Simulated scan of single mutants.
Amino acid sequence: MEIKQLGANTFYVPGPTNIGLWRQNETDVYLIDAGNDKDAGRKLKKLLDAHGWTLKGILCTHSNADHIGGNAYLQRQYGCPVFSAGMEKAFISHPVLEPSLLYGGFPCKALRHKFLMAKPSDVVDVSNPGFPKEIEIIALPGHFLDMIGFRTPDDVLFVADCLSSEETLSKYKVGFIYDVKAYKETLEQLKTVKAKWFVPSHAAPAADLRSLIQCNLDVVQEIETTLLDILSDWTGFDEALRRLFDTYGLVMSIEQYALVGSTIRSYLAYFADEGKAVYRFSKNRMEWKRHEGAR
Rank of each mutant, 00 (worst) to 15 (best):
F106T: 13
G69Y: 04
R210M: 13
M87I: 08
L145M: 15
W288Y: 14
V260F: 02
S266Q: 04
P200L: 02
L74R: 01
Y270M: 05
T192H: 08
F281R: 13
R290H: 02
S164F: 14
E185Y: 00
I92H: 06
L55Y: 10
S266V: 07
F281S: 06
A182Q: 06
S266T: 10
L111E: 09
E167N: 11
Q256D: 05
I138K: 14
V193H: 00
I32F: 08
G142D: 01
F281Q: 13
G149P: 01
K184Q: 13
C60N: 15
E26Q: 11
G104W: 07
Y183P: 02
G15A: 07
V260D: 03
Y78I: 00
Y178N: 12
A72M: 02
L111Y: 04
V96I: 14
K181F: 09
K196W: 07
C80M: 10
L212K: 12
A34D: 03
V251Q: 15
L74N: 01
D154K: 13
L163D: 12
D218W: 00
V219N: 09
D39C: 01
P132R: 14
K43D: 10
D49L: 08
H94P: 03
Q189M: 14
A206G: 09
T225N: 15
Y257W: 10
D229Q: 12
L59Y: 09
V199P: 07
A294R: 08
I3R: 05
L102W: 02
S266L: 07
K4Y: 11
L59H: 03
Y172G: 06
L227R: 00
L145Y: 13
S201Y: 05
E292H: 09
A207S: 13
L231M: 08
K114P: 05
T263N: 00
L140I: 06
P14Q: 01
F237C: 03
K276F: 05
L102I: 01
G15Y: 06
A72C: 08
V219P: 00
L97T: 06
A72V: 00
F83Y: 13
K119T: 04
P107D: 09
A118L: 12
R76N: 11
G70W: 00
L227Y: 05
K171D: 15
A258K: 01
T235E: 09
K38T: 09
Y267T: 05
A206M: 15
A294K: 08
E185K: 14
A277N: 05
K109I: 10
I135P: 05
H94D: 12
L102Q: 02
L111H: 07
S100P: 03
G175H: 10
T186H: 05
P14K: 04
N64V: 10
W22R: 00
T152E: 08
L217K: 06
Y248N: 08
N25Y: 02
G261C: 02
S63I: 00
H67Q: 11
A8E: 07
A90V: 01
C162L: 08
G275A: 15
H67C: 10
C162G: 07
P120F: 04
L97H: 13
K46N: 13
D218K: 07
D218H: 04
Q75P: 04
E167F: 10
H94T: 15
M286A: 15
R23Y: 03
D146W: 03
R23T: 08
Y248V: 01
G275K: 13
G293E: 05
N9F: 07
D28P: 03
D154F: 12
Y178S: 12
